[in-house]
């Protein structure tokens, strides 16, 4: 059976998916995950989970809310407002700007393929 492996580099980090291993049970999966993914890479913690326990949302389904104009819910829309007065508001806006840029690019690539 196949186990997906998630590695956390340092305390406080997110566990990120790094790959998967074959193993007959959880203990063996943890052992193989250590050998495969923690032997050289800096590791604070590893998670293993059976692949069949993972539910996946496909790209098509994940994009369901990206097709109509929802600009009203982005910070950049309110561009008559200067966010620079508060660092945390400015940070949030630049994170949102980056997320919106990625979405736009994905949509454009899709358009080119069609």
């Amino acid at each position: 059976m196949i186990w997906e492996v998630f590695r956390q580099e340092a305390p406080g980090d997110y566990h990120e998916h790094v790959g998967n291993v074959h193993a007959p049970d959880r203990e063996m999966a943890k052992l193989f995950a250590r050998i495969q993914h923690a032997r050289r890479m800096q590791t604070n913690s590893l998670w293993v989970t059976p692949r069949e326990e993972i539910g996946e949302v496909s790209a098509e389904d994940a994009a369901f809310d990206g097709r109509t104009d929802k600009s009203y819910r982005w910070a950049m829309t309110y561009n008559e407002i200067d966010a620079s007065f508060a660092e945390e508001v400015a940070d949030s806006e630049s994170e949102q700007r980056e997320a919106a840029r990625k979405r736009r690019e994905a949509l454009r690539d899709e358009g080119n393929e069609a």
Partner: peptide, 13 residues
Amino acid sequence: CFEEGFHVKHGES
């Protein structure tokens, strides 16, 4: 915090 920037800017708007 990622989401809140929209709330504050919309509120100021």
